[in-house]
Simulated assay, not measured.
Amino acid sequence: MSRLDSMRRRLTAQIDGLNWAAEQITGLTGDVLELGLGNGRTYDHLRENLPGRRIRVIDRVLQPHPSCVPPVEDFMQGEAEDMLAALAAEGAMMALAHYDFGYGDKARDVAEGAKLSPLIVPLMVAGGLVVSQQPLVGIEQIAGPDTIDPERYLFYRAS
């Protein structure tokens, strides 16, 4: 498969997965957490599809498309461990988290997901969902929409 075809599969999986997750959290209270802003495409998608939810964003740098810059009060710049600890300290609770961090090195990405999982799980409301490109630990993995290859995107439900 070409890299372009692979990118199309990833973007389709993101759209289908985030749309599915947005429907699943109807009725839950809590904010949304975008872990990794990048260009801001998924942030923009979440903002459009969950207009009544506050979307908190964590990234090391702020470099999105100009139309996708989160409000200052919702963007947390720095290392994820520190930012997740700050969210916990303020009592933030998430109905949905989208884990989109990655270095492009599978072993490094998996290790980071395992390291950050214990900081994400306590932020989730009961029944809240985490949609992730990387495997996470300490949270129940569930089946997502059947349009997505289970190896492409992973889905988790907080207890």
Results as ranks from 00 to 15, higher is better:
P135W: 12
G36W: 08
V131N: 04
A95I: 01
T147Q: 09
R60P: 01
D105F: 07
P135H: 10
D82I: 00
V72W: 04
I139A: 10
G128H: 03
E48K: 13
R3H: 09
L123V: 00
D105S: 03
P64D: 07
V72F: 05
T12K: 12
A92R: 12
L33Y: 06
L35E: 05
G30M: 04
E140D: 15
A126I: 07
D5V: 11
R8A: 15
L136N: 02
M124A: 06
L84P: 00
Y99V: 15
L33K: 08
A88Q: 06
L50G: 09
A22S: 15
G27E: 10
L154E: 03
G104S: 04
R54E: 10
V57P: 09
L136Q: 03
N49L: 08
M94K: 01
G40N: 11
P66D: 09
R3T: 11
Q133D: 15
C68E: 12
H98G: 03
W20S: 13
A158T: 05
P70F: 02
H45S: 08
Q14Y: 13
M7Y: 13
D5E: 14
A22H: 06
R3V: 06
G91W: 00
Y153H: 12
K115S: 07
D59K: 08
A111L: 06
R60N: 14
G127R: 03
V61D: 14
V131M: 04
L116E: 02
W20C: 12
V130K: 01
L116I: 04
M76E: 11
P51Q: 10
T147K: 09
E48F: 07
L11E: 13
P71W: 00
A80C: 01
L50R: 09
S159L: 07
L154R: 15
V130H: 02
I139K: 02
N49Q: 14
I139Q: 04
L84R: 00
F155K: 05
V137D: 12
R8E: 14
Q134E: 14
T147H: 02
G27L: 07
T147I: 04
R47S: 15
Y156K: 05
I58D: 07
G104M: 07
P145R: 08
T26A: 15
A95C: 03
L87A: 08
G27N: 10
Y43R: 03
I120V: 14
Q24R: 14
L62S: 05
G91N: 00
Y99P: 00
F101E: 04
L4R: 15
Y156P: 05
I55G: 01
T42P: 02
G128E: 03
V131G: 01
T147A: 10
D74C: 05
D59G: 07
E140S: 15
G52D: 15
P51I: 11
R3D: 14
M93T: 08
V125C: 14
G17W: 11
I148M: 08
E73S: 12
S117A: 11
Y156N: 03
G78M: 01
L50C: 13
Y153L: 15
Y153A: 10
L154I: 07
V72H: 12
F75Q: 03
D146M: 11
R157G: 07
D16V: 08
G17S: 09
L33M: 11
S117E: 01
